[in-house]
Computed example of a mutant assay.
Amino acid sequence: MAETGQKFPEVQGGGSLIVAWQVKGKKVLVVGGGEVAAGRILHCLNADAAVTVISPRARLNSEVAYRVAHNQVTHIDRNFLPSDLDDDAISMVLVAVDDPAASTTIWKLCKERRIPANIADVPPECDFYFGSVHRDGPLQVMVSTNGKGPRLASMIRKFIAKQLPSNAGQAIETVGQLRVRLREMAPRPEEGPKRMAWMSKVSEAYPWDEICGLSEEDIGNLLRFYPSGKVPSLDELKAMRASPAGKDVFDGSFGFSVGA
């Protein structure tokens, strides 16, 4: 194939594919009840997964015991059995026990059944890793070292979190509301590229603090500019607040004006 003269990103092998795995309502099996298991369980509950914990009650730490007592997870009070993997509804298995031989056995059983598994502290026996996560409402930022330096990942995550605006999560919530209403207003598939381009303009047009402060009325007024593909300035948008019904004159071609 002839060279086009275009420059493309260099391939950097050795990484992992970082994705947001949607496990809402799906069954996740956690083997173990200690500190590491507690962290895994919290991650899964935050993602609205249906978590089943297999561990003798005497080995549950206080956090996992709390989850069990408050019916946040399903608890099986015994050690793991191979038959626990016979449930076709299991989406993933997380192993966090202080028994390397048992962990490897469970991993091999998962491989036989093609169930994605994570074996704590054993990177070669992991289909996926848990990174260090910063959470602010809908905002999630994950730092992964591909299992090579979990503590360092935590330090880097904390550094990144300090650089983010304190209200980033709320700004994303507001943008999310705008996207939902825009899709309701322009639902046709062929509108997709235009919706995406307009949303990009909106996201880049206003500072974080101002996006956080947009009200339902502001979002409604902002959507009136979508047909023209334009985005009003903040001053224009604020001037439209509480405009008397029927008094606005707006055709999308130049902005808006308010009648006397």
Rank of each mutant, 00 (worst) to 15 (best):
A161F: 03
P138M: 15
F128M: 04
K162W: 04
N146G: 10
D209N: 05
W208P: 00
S144G: 06
V202K: 07
R188A: 10
Q163M: 13
K148W: 01
S154E: 12
L182S: 05
L164E: 08
Y129A: 03
L152W: 04
M142F: 01
P165K: 13
M199L: 15
S203Q: 04
A171S: 15
A171Q: 13
P187Y: 10
L178P: 02
M185V: 01
M196E: 10
E210M: 12
A171D: 12
H134M: 14
R135S: 07
M199A: 08
A197K: 14
F128R: 06
D209P: 00
L152Q: 08
M155N: 05
S132I: 05
S144T: 14
E190Q: 04
T174F: 01
A171C: 13
E191K: 09
K148P: 00
K158Q: 14
M196A: 14
Q163T: 13
E210A: 08
A161Y: 04
R181W: 02
G192C: 05
N167L: 09
I172G: 06
G137Y: 13
I160C: 08
R183P: 00
S144C: 12
G147M: 08
K158G: 07
K148V: 06
D209K: 06
P138L: 14
P138K: 15
N167A: 10
A205T: 03
R188N: 02
M142V: 15
K158S: 13
V180K: 09
M199C: 12
G169T: 09
P165T: 12
R157S: 11
R157W: 06
S203M: 04
C212A: 01
S132R: 06
G169W: 11
E204N: 06
R195Y: 05
P187L: 08
A186H: 01
E204M: 07
R151F: 03
